[in-house]
Design a protein around this nucleic acid. Structure first.
Length: 459
RNA sequence: GGCGGCGUAGCCGAGUGGCUCAGGCAAGGGCCUGCAAAGCCCCGUACGCGGGUUCGAUUCCCGCCGCCGCCUCCA
């Protein structure tokens, strides 16, 4: 039984989807006004692993993740650049997916854009007004009246009273709002801003309404999982709940939130200026190192990411690749289908415990060692089964191994050089053999002598 | 001020009232190897501090110290 830490319950809960065997999942996606940083990458990988694992264990998963393509920052950035909001958003959405593709993050089944769901948002806003939970301020917009919803704050565990008390310190007090805690559902258009017609005048949606409207429209009432970064818990998903439940809808059943990426002990954020571009980290250490680093840590904890950490993760991945290469050299062809079910059970037990990837990874590391031992001892069937188990489990984590078979570039030339060295070694001409190895090294090729011959891979 | 999380060996990081054990990376020793690479084996007696409960606490309780996040920009 899979157990999930639910933010609303602040506890582990048995996961029972709305429809057995089918999981509906919504994750708050990006506001594409700039290139993605490490934090975006981590969150995307975390929920990609959740999605993959659910599918891997046999559930049919419908994964929806939105793109907020109209929002204050997009408007501001577009104005700065002298371009349109839609061109800017589309550009950065492309950049975002370019990087996530490299990380092996699967595309959502549906990727709704806010600008495509304005009618659904307006319907929801109208429902909220009809329910007496929202009010119009002429020339300003439509606001959600938080006080009308006693359950408000059940996700982030704070009360209306607490919020009112701490308001003012950070919230710009707007005298027109009935309470500083009330938030915008619909913002009246300012000159030059993109806008849509509405019963409340031309304007655009508030930040939170899109996710309520789109998730309900696509996944339906009471969908299973809602995910996002934990800095969003308040206010965004809190307000999503308010908007949906305030209008009488049943909203998400389980709430998952992933921890922040840290830099030198501080949260990575644009305002601190301490962010690293995701693309740079992937360029420097490879996409699998990034993913490995993420799954080595529990998704709810903060995670420090720096070059040293990525280097260590890359070294671990290299070790797995080395196993795959050795196995191939020994004539083993392992596929996930050959996995040892009893061993897989240990992996499942870890993953079922709130996606405990650190323990899952430890289990896999044990198989790696055992597979290498089996290879050393010439127990090829055992090695094949263990490697198959490794591959099967890594599948769930979205990691593939490189056994070197696909390295086609310059292959013939390298093979010829390797053969020359093999001949020299056979003649015990070590100096000549080492010269060839130096040549290959200059080409970025690393040799490994195995009982069944010499294999090589790119450095 | 309110709410929450964390402090574990050189670094990262799971976990548990006692049992040999996480795991990764790095360092050291050994085996293998012409050398190298890869691999395997061995090695580390760690749990912020002070009390308490207990036969026994890193694990439970209380207090303290330190770090971090959220409290309407944020993944």
């Amino acid at each position: 039984m899979l157990r999930i830490h639910d933010t609303a319950a602040r506890a582990l809960r048995d996961f029972e989807p709305r429809i057995p065997g089918q999981v509906s999942m919504y994750v708050c996606g990006p506001t594409p006004y700039d290139v993605p940083h490490l934090g975006h990458g981590r969150t995307a990988v975390v929920f990609d692993v959740v999605r993959r694992y659910l599918a891997w264990r046999g559930d049919r998963v419908t994964f929806v993740s939105n793109v907020t393509d109209i929002e204050d920052r997009i408007i501001a950035r577009a104005a700065e650049r002298g371009t349109t909001e839609s061109d800017l958003a589309r550009h950065y959405e492309d950049v975002y997916w370019e990087q996530l593709d490299r990380l092996g993050v699967l595309r959502p089944d549906e990727m709704p854009h806010a600008t495509e769901f304005v009618p659904q948002m307006q319907t929801l806003i109208a429902e909220l007004i009809a329910a007496g939970r929202a009010y119009v301020i002429e020339g300003s917009g439509v606001y959600f009246q938080v006080e009308t919803l006693p359950e408000y704050g059940r996700l982030s565990h704070r009360t209306f009273a607490q919020l009112v008390e701490s308001a003012g310190a950070r919230i710009e007090v707007d005298d027109e709002k009935r309470s500083p805690v009330d938030f915008a559902l619909w913002k009246a258009a300012k000159p030059g801003e993109p806008s849509w017609e509405s019963p409340w005048g031309p304007g655009r949606p508030g930040w939170h309404i899109e996710c309520s409207a789109m998730s309900l429209d696509i996944l339906g009432e009471e969908f299973d999982l809602h995910g996002g970064g934990d800095d969003l818990v308040f206010p965004h998903p809190e307000n999503e709940i308010a908007q949906a439940e305030g209008a009488g809808h049943h909203f998400a059943r389980y709430w998952l939130h992933s921890g922040m990426v840290m830099v030198s002990g501080e949260k990575m954020s644009k305002s601190l200026g301490n962010f690293t571009f995701l693309a740079d980290a992937i360029d420097a250490h490879g996409p699998r190192a990034f993913r490995w680093l993420v799954v080595q840590h529990h998704y709810r904890n903060q995670l420090e990411i720096n070059d040293d950490a990525l280097r260590a993760a890359a070294a671990a991945i290299d070790g797995f690749d080395a196993l795959a290469r050795r196995a191939r050299a020994a004539g083993i062809t392992a596929t996930p289908a050959g996995a040892l079910s009893a061993e897989v059970g240990r992996f499942v037990a870890a993953m079922d415990d709130d996606f405990d990837t650190p323990n899952a990874v430890a289990v896999i590391a044990g198989w790696r060692r055992d597979a290498n031992s089996a290879l050393d001892a010439g127990r090829l069937d055992e090695a094949a089964a263990l490697l198959a188990t490794v591959l099967h489990a890594l599948d769930a984590l979205g990691i593939a191994l490189d056994d070197g078979a696909g390295t086609a570039d310059g292959r013939d030339e390298i093979d010829a050089l390797v053969q020359r060295r093999t001949d020299a070694r056979a003649a015990q001409d070590w100096a000549a053999a080492d010269r060839v190895r130096d040549e290959l090294s200059a080409l970025g090729v690393v040799l490994e002598d195995t009982p069944t011959g010499t294999i090589w891979h790119r450095a």
